[in-house]
């Protein structure tokens, strides 16, 4: 079975794909999905050390997905990446167990640094 380092959940398909490619170039193997339910199913079947999660998803809100992931896999680090997160969203997500909260457009170097820290901690 193929081993994945990260799950990218974003309804903007091209964005998610592009992010996966960039991460792949940096040695992180990522899986991409475009809605909340699929993401929950995937996480239930398989372990991902990290999940990048958008808040606005076509079938449900990101916080809901976050809650399900954390119930199912408490050890998974969930990074929220959203285009229009409010302070309230940030609070809710952090309280819901998210590892961090980032705004789009993304600075890939900051993301990489953060991921490195997560990896370091988990190992």
């Amino acid at each position: 079975m193929k081993h994945f380092d990260i799950l990218i959940v974003d309804d903007e398909r091209r964005y998610a794909d592009m992010l996966a490619r960039r991460l792949a170039l940096r040695g992180l193997i990522g899986k991409v999905c475009y809605d909340g339910q699929t993401a929950i199913d995937i996480v239930a079947q398989e372990h991902f050390p990290m999940v990048i999660l958008d808040l606005r998803l076509p079938d449900m809100y990101g916080t809901e997905v976050l809650a399900k992931i954390k119930t199912c896999r408490p050890e998974t680090a969930v990074i929220i990446l959203t285009g229009h997160g409010t302070e309230k969203d940030r609070e809710t997500c952090m309280a819901g167990g998210a590892h961090s909260f980032m705004n789009k457009p993304l600075n890939i170097d900051r993301l990489m640094a953060m991921m490195a820290r997560i990896k370091e901690r988990s190992s």
Binding site: E12, R14, Y15, M18, L19, R22, G83, H84, K104, P105, L106
Partner: peptide, 9 residues
């Protein structure tokens, strides 16, 4: 913001 993020990536 969304198209901007896409351009960025």
């Amino acid at each position: 913001n969304n198209p901007l993020a896409l351009i960025n990536e």
